[in-house]
Each structure stands twice: as structure tokens, then as C-alpha cells.
Amino acid sequence: MQKKDIGLGILIIVVGAIVYMRNPLFLSPINLGNTANLIGLFGLFAIGQGFVIMTGGIDLSVGSVIALLGVLFVDMVGKFGVPWPLAMAIIIGLGVLIGLAHGILITRFRLQPFVVTLCGLLIYRGIARGYTAESTAGFPFGSSYPQLEWLTIGRSFGVPHSFLAMLIVAAVMWVVLHHTVFGRHLCAVGKNEEAARFSGINTRFVTVMAYVICAVLASIAAIYFAMFTKSVQPSSHGNFYELYAIAAAVLGGCSLRGGEGSVIGIVLGAVLLQELQNLVNLLGIPSSLNFAVMGAVILLGVLADQQFASYRTRKNTERALGLLQKP
């Protein structure tokens, strides 16, 4: 665990304590369960976004991917009667293809990640709206899929399965990032691609894989979101979600310049974002203000982090100078 993660953890506890003192409902099992569900849903794709950011790139298409794949999943299962495990496999396969397309456009055709994924954002949203002709995709009345529902919106001992899925994904990605050769190469490529290439690393492969991971996690999140909302409104479903993911990753210590970040940090970032949403609801702040609250807290957090860092450096220099002057 890094210093930054501990700081973020403390911030989460402090904010939680304040909210609890103003409104004890914060720690009620119902509220905790609902918040955990949202943390799971948003955490799933925030982790993928973190991997892309660590390569020094960005994926703006996540929200649209969630809308398009959500529509397709609901239609496949609800309208065409595709068995849900097969539908799930197809959706994840589509996620792989989307990630490959992004990665190849960025590495082979040397387009900027911002441009590629911005176009993705427009294209996938447009296809989702065109495919459904702007109508909401939903399951037929009275239909039920017990196993699929257990897997996605079920709960064990009060813990939502979306949250457990996020924890499993986080654990796997933690091993991948911090304990595999690929993870080492990801950090190297993000910081200094040229050095990585000189060291014999296949930098294109590493970059493409980061976009594939991001799109696959977004496709898994798309299934969870579709099952959570039960109907997908193609023009509004998943709007701004890429920004939540970027916010969680940046709060969690990922540098937009690449090369830095931790999975624990990203998860804690997702926790803090949902806690702030919850704060807006529980403290009776008009919910129209929730973006403003979120933006202000992120800004303050990043500012404080910067100030603490320069304070630490100053203190260290002073101590070093003091040691020099002592004898």
C-alpha cells in the first residue's frame, strides 16, 4: 500500500464520520448495501480506465460502450432469447474487439488516444440510439432469469454481487499490475516509451492490451448496469461515466502523464466518489448540485495532495540542511 492510498483511505473515513454525525442513516445496512452496489458498478470500469491512464492515454468511450453493449445485451437476452451465458460471452467478445480497435488505431496509425476514444464516444452512442430508434430497450414484461439475476443483482449476506465482482476484478488486476512482467512493462511504457522500446519491450502490445483490458471491464460493467437498471435508455444510459472513471483513477493517484497508479488507489477513488454522491442525498443537498460537490472535492483533494507533497520536500530539505550544519 502506498502513502497516497492511506491518505485517501483516511479522507474516506473522515467524510464518512462527518456524514454519519449529521445523518446516522449513513451506516444503516440498506444504505451501505446500496452504496456498495454502486461502488461495485463504477469500480469495475474505473480499474480499466486506470490501466489506460497508466500508459499515458485516456479512454473517453467508456460511457457509450456501456450504453451500446447494454442495449445489445438486453435485446439479445430479452428479445431474441439468446441464452444469457452466450450473450455474456458475445458482449465480452465485443469488448475485446472495441479495445483492439482503439489500441491498433493508437499504436499502428499513431492517432492520439483522446481523438480515437472521443470518436468512439460519439460512434457507439450514435449506433446505440440508431439501433433502437431512440426507444428504451427492456426485458419483456414478466420475464425472469434467476441465475443471471443472482449473478448480477443478487446479494450474499447483504453484500451485493456487483461489489464482490469488483473486488475479484480488483484482486486479479492488482496481481497483474504489481506482480507480473506485463504490469512492470505497463509502468515503463507509460513513463518513458522510448526507454521501454530500447529495453526490448513490445510497447505496442502493452498499449493495445491496456485498451483491451479497459474495454473488456467496460463490457462487464455494461452487463451489470443493464441488469441493475433493467431497461436501457440509449441516449442517457452511461452518460458521463467515463468522467467518473477518470475522476476515480486520478483521485486514486494515477498520473495523467502516465506511469503511476495503483489498483487499491483506483478502488478507493471509486469509493470516495460514491460516498460523495451519498453525502449529497443524505445531507439534503439538492441533488442538482451533486456534480458541483464532486468537482469541488476532487479539486480540493488534488490541491491538498500537491501541497502536502511540496511541504514534505521542504521539510526533508530543511532536515538535511540541519544535519549538515550541526557539527
Binding site: 507480473t180 512482467v181 512492470r184 512493462h185 509502468c187 515503463a188 507509460g190 513513463k191 518513458n192 522510448e194 526507454a195 521501454a196 530500447f198 529495453s199 526490448g200 519491450i201 506511469g259 503511476e260
Partner: peptide
Amino acid sequence: DLAICNNLSAASNVFLGREPT
């Protein structure tokens, strides 16, 4: 200056591209 990644430790840089597993 080219062949070193600033964000990694000295050991990681020595083994960059040839990590033992």
C-alpha cells in the same frame, strides 16, 4: 538518458525487459 524509466526502482530498471519470474 533514453534507456531509463524514472518512475521505477533501480532494480526494476536493471531488469527492464528481462524480468525474472
